[in-house]
């Protein structure tokens, strides 16, 4: 049977791995090639590489960094940031990405997801959703989609958007809670569960991991197929191998 995946995330800004808090306050976390190699050796199941300022600055992603990272690892690599055209998708796949993540580009043109999926296979098309809780206390929970690295509100309901993106051909969803990103308070499991209950494709949980228990909650309470984390791995709090052992001891099926 399929194993649950543990995915370190490399947020890239101007060629360096960085770590932000709630999509702001960025700190340096190393050279992408060295960081990627380290996680590959620790037994990471995949890597995600996000050029976090590409959309906001309207420039193409750093292909050279993608190539250098892809050369160092023998696990799948998802790359995102400023992907808006089939030419962008093709260029990233050629540079060594196995999947491309589309975020702002999907909101601007939902049919782009269909076009990219038809051309390159839906399994290679990940739609990333950055969302913020907008409901007040005691209201039914509701989350809104943000684009441009969390800088622009869209007014779109995030759960409805997730369903629509799968209908448009997304092969996987990468869900980031902007409220939790960098806070180490754990995933927004209510948001995760709302989406994993609604869609038939794999869902990757992101935003807020501070402890190994949080990874477990992503699977057990959120229904995620994969969990993504950055700070706990970048800061050396835990290795990927330690995270996997913890999850295995809790009965989660992981690749060890």
């Amino acid at each position: 049977m399929l194993a649950k995946r543990i995915i370190p995330c490399l947020d890239i800004d101007r060629g360096r791995v960085v770590k932000g808090i709630k999509f702001g306050d960025v700190q340096d976390a190393g050279d992408p090639v060295e960081v990627a190699r380290r996680y590959d050796q620790q037994g990471a199941d995949e890597l995600v590489f996000l050029d976090i300022t590409a959309s906001a600055e309207a420039r193409p992603i750093l292909f050279q960094t993608v190539e250098q990272v892809a050369e160092q690892i023998y696990i799948p690599l998802t790359v995102g940031g400023g992907v808006r055209t089939c030419a962008d998708v093709r260029a990233l796949l050629s540079a060594g990405a196995d999947k491309v993540s589309i975020n702002t580009g999907a909101v601007e043109n939902p049919d782009f997801v269909t076009e990219a999926g038809d051309r390159y296979g839906v399994q290679g098309i990940v739609v990333a959703i950055d969302a913020k809780r907008v409901s007040k206390k005691k209201e039914n929970p509701r989350w809104e989609v943000f684009t441009h690295g969390g800088r622009k509100a869209t007014g779109i309901d995030a759960v409805e958007w997730a369903v629509k993106m799968v209908q448009k051909g997304a092969g996987e969803l990468l869900l980031t809670s902007m409220d939790r990103d960098g806070t180490k308070q754990g995933y927004d499991v209510e948001f995760l569960k709302a989406v994993t209950d609604a869609v038939p494709v794999p869902v990757v949980a992101s935003g807020g991991v501070g402890t190994l228990e949080h990874l477990y909650e992503g699977f057990a309470k959120g229904g995620a197929d994969a969990v993504l984390a950055a700070s706990i791995f970048h800061q050396g709090t835990f290795t990927v191998a330690e995270a996997k052992q913890f999850l295995a001891d809790k009965g989660v099926r992981v690749r060890i």
């Binding site: 049977m1 399929l2 194993a3 649950k4 995946r5 199941d45 839906v122 399994q123 092969g171 996987e172 994993t196 038939p200 494709v201 794999p202 869902v203 229904g223 197929d225 994969a226 690749r255």
Partner: peptide
């Protein structure tokens, strides 16, 4: 839509990950 797996968990398509 995918059938439930052996452990009762909902299976997703694509089959994506390590097996």
């Amino acid at each position: 839509p995918p059938a439930a797996g052996i452990d009762g968990q909902r299976l997703k398509v694509p089959h994506m990950g390590w097996n």
